[in-house]
Amino acid sequence: MLSYIARRLLGMIPTLLIVVVIVFLFVHILPGDPARLVAGSDADEATINLIRKDLGLDLPLPQQFLRYVEDLSQGNLGHSLRTKRPVTQEISERFMPTLWLTVTSMAWSVLFGMGIGICSAVWRNRWPDRLGMTLAVSGISFPAFALGMILMQIFSVQFGWLPTVGADSWKHYILPSITLGAAVAAVMARFTRASFVEVIQEDFVRTARAKGLTETSVVFKHTLRNALIPVVTMMGLQFGFLLGGSIVVETVFNWPGLGRLLVDSVNQRDYPVIQGLVLMFSMEFILINLLVDVLYGAINPSIRYK
């Protein structure tokens, strides 16, 4: 197992190099001059040229890339063009609110999504199945920003039960986590149902029932473990999407997280922060995929890594 993890970590290097190249080129294609934005609208051309030289934007693109790679190798993501602070500090201050929001959203969405999926599979083609899949389709189809505004209107404006902005207490997490996790719960419900329906028709399940085992034992002891492999794969992907794709929800609720930081950085053409965030999101997906592969062995002991 350790050798497998080591090989996977080494295999991340080419992927990260490709990501670095793509991110660097993409950010420099964005319209707008960051030097002009830093200098302000009233700055003259001489001032703008000085700022451009100070930022290294006057160098040819290959030299800018080599300087960027050299800084990355030293763990330096640069400094924000807006705040002049290190990019690592900008990201670290926003990371925990986004992480806890993602964990909260993932926890309830997995719990309810898998519960609905299992019930729909056990009672398939009956009213629990139809009700569960109707809820799942509704969760996938309804836009996150619209759901967030409806929840704010009902629970914050009309009833005054929950706050709408900020991340100061556990109450602040309720509405954003519901908004962020609704689509994930719907996907998990449909995916769990499909996996369970396939496994529950296998011969070993019929054998377990023929031995006189209770339906609860058949579902949770025999069917669940075998059906979890594809579900865990989807769970890992959804967690990565939540962690890196909470931009809309963080904007709606003015959440002090990474998604809001990315939006502000794109609007201000803050190249170093954009590059740092995209690289971090890419690293998260790679590590999550590695964790999912390791979990396969924990769920199904028959899986061995060489």
Results as ranks from 00 to 15, higher is better:
Glu93Ile: 04
Ala208Gln: 14
Glu284Phe: 15
Leu30Gly: 09
Ser169Leu: 02
Leu287Arg: 02
Gly212Thr: 06
Leu213Met: 03
Tyr296Met: 08
Asp270Arg: 01
Arg52Thr: 09
Ala144Arg: 02
Gly32Tyr: 02
Thr98Trp: 10
Val218Leu: 07
Arg130Thr: 12
Leu243Asp: 12
Gly117Ala: 11
Trp161Asn: 04
Met188Cys: 04
Ala208Glu: 08
Leu2Thr: 06
Arg7Ile: 11
Leu295Ser: 12
Asp168Ile: 00
Val20Ile: 15
Leu111Asp: 06
Ser141Glu: 10
Ile247Gln: 06
Leu55Val: 15
Asn76Gln: 08
Thr15Val: 07
Ala227His: 00
Ser217Glu: 13
Val199Tyr: 02
Gln89Phe: 11
Ile48Trp: 02
Met106Gly: 12
Val199Cys: 07
Ala121Thr: 10
Asp203Pro: 14
Leu2Ala: 14
Thr47Asn: 15
Phe26Trp: 14
Leu16Ala: 09
Ile247Lys: 01
Leu175Val: 05
Val110Cys: 13
Gly132Pro: 13
Thr134Trp: 13
Val165Met: 09
Val27Asp: 06
Phe159Pro: 12
Asp58Ala: 14
Met152Val: 11
Arg7Phe: 05
Val249Lys: 01
Thr214Ser: 05
Asp33Pro: 01
Glu215Ser: 11
Asp203Phe: 14
Ile288Met: 08
Met149Tyr: 13
Pro143Lys: 07
Phe285Val: 15
His172Ser: 05
Asp71Gly: 07
Leu101Tyr: 15
Thr83Arg: 15
Tyr305Ile: 13
Leu37Cys: 03
Val205Phe: 12
Ser73Phe: 02
Met188Tyr: 02
Val199Pro: 00
Leu213Ile: 00
Phe204Cys: 05
Arg126Met: 15
Ala43Lys: 07
Trp108His: 10
Trp108Ser: 06
Tyr68Asn: 04
Thr83Met: 14
Asp33Val: 07
Arg36Tyr: 05
Ser282Arg: 12
Leu258His: 06
Ser105Asn: 08
Leu66Cys: 12
Val69Tyr: 04
Ile13Trp: 13
Ser41Leu: 05
Cys119Trp: 09
Phe24Asp: 05
Phe26Lys: 14
Lys306Tyr: 15
Ile22Glu: 12
Asn267Lys: 10
His172Glu: 03
His79Pro: 15
Phe285Trp: 13
Pro34Cys: 06
Pro14Asp: 04
Ile178Phe: 08
Ser80Gln: 06
Ala189Trp: 02
Leu72Phe: 15
Arg190Leu: 00
Ile51Met: 09
Ile150Lys: 08
Leu295Lys: 02
Phe196Tyr: 09
Ile29Ala: 12
Phe220Thr: 00
His28Glu: 14
Ser73Glu: 10
Gly244Glu: 04
Thr15Asp: 13
Phe241Asn: 10
Glu198Thr: 01
His222Val: 05
Gly181Phe: 15
Thr214Asp: 03
Arg269Gly: 12
Thr216Glu: 13
Val165Phe: 07
Met133Ser: 05
Leu180Tyr: 06
Leu111Arg: 03
Ala107Val: 15
Leu180Trp: 00
Leu261His: 08
Leu242Trp: 02
Gly132Tyr: 12
Asn125Lys: 11
Gly78Ala: 06
